[in-house]
Design a protein around this nucleic acid. Structure first.
Lengths: 111, 111
DNA sequence: TTCTATTATCGTATATTTACGATATAAAAT
DNA sequence: ATTTTATATCGTAAATATACGATAATAGAA
């Protein structure tokens, strides 16, 4: 009944999984969409758009920040978030690199 | 104390989140890596490589299959899995499409 | 200073995930 | 027909995630 075996895997796998986990909730995808659409940094406008309580949105923002997908600075009573594009590029590149060497060969599937 | 609000978001967000969730555990990333490296379809070789019990690996395979990232066919006592490349392409394209219109403008960050 | 507005954190209930062993299933081998 | 082998499923315990309201914190306005 051991648990939490995640650290027994490779660093690369863990990092990819961590980012994927941050992306694994529609609310967080929606938050990223809002941040991308409004070019300026947003704060509580996100709360107005999502069907969630303010505290829940704040929690989701924290998870996105911990995963490195967004950056945020406190600016008095209001905070300012923006997307970290490099983290996204790193993620998609990481996913692709798992397969690049074989992607072409496998087009016709297997079983 | 309502729960499971995921269905209140858009279909696109839900689909992206679902795939991301399947990718959100290092064991499943590792499984995909193995499936990609061995060009032929694998089954219990995965169990030998991972630090997990057979039943746990089977569970992870099921989740990857449910998310559409792999395909599997039963072949007697042994089963045959392979990667569904199209699902990956759809996923990365979906992630990128959240931002494409603004990606260039934002390079210099915000706050 | 006191009030207001905005965001973060705490506490908590419920849901889901993760992992395992035990058991079922199903084809091949003996 | 029985055994072996490979995989899936069931049951279950512990961990984590999700959501909310209540509360703290912090800067600006009155």
């Amino acid at each position: 009944m051991a648990f939490h075996k995640k650290e027994e895997f490779g660093k690369k796998e863990q990092e990819l999984a961590e980012v994927a986990k941050a992306l694994s909730h529609p609310a967080r995808i929606a938050i990223l969409k809002v941040l991308a659409q409004k070019n300026e940094c947003i704060c509580g406008e996100i709360v107005d758009v999502l069907p969630l309580a303010q505290s829940t949105v704040s929690q989701h923002l924290k998870e996105l920040k911990n995963a490195g997908l967004i950056e945020g600075t406190l600016d008095g009573p209001r905070s300012c978030y923006c997307i970290n594009w490099k983290a996204f590029e790193k993620f998609t590149a990481g996913i692709n690199s798992l397969f690049t060497n074989l992607k072409a060969k496998n087009e016709k599937a297997c079983c």
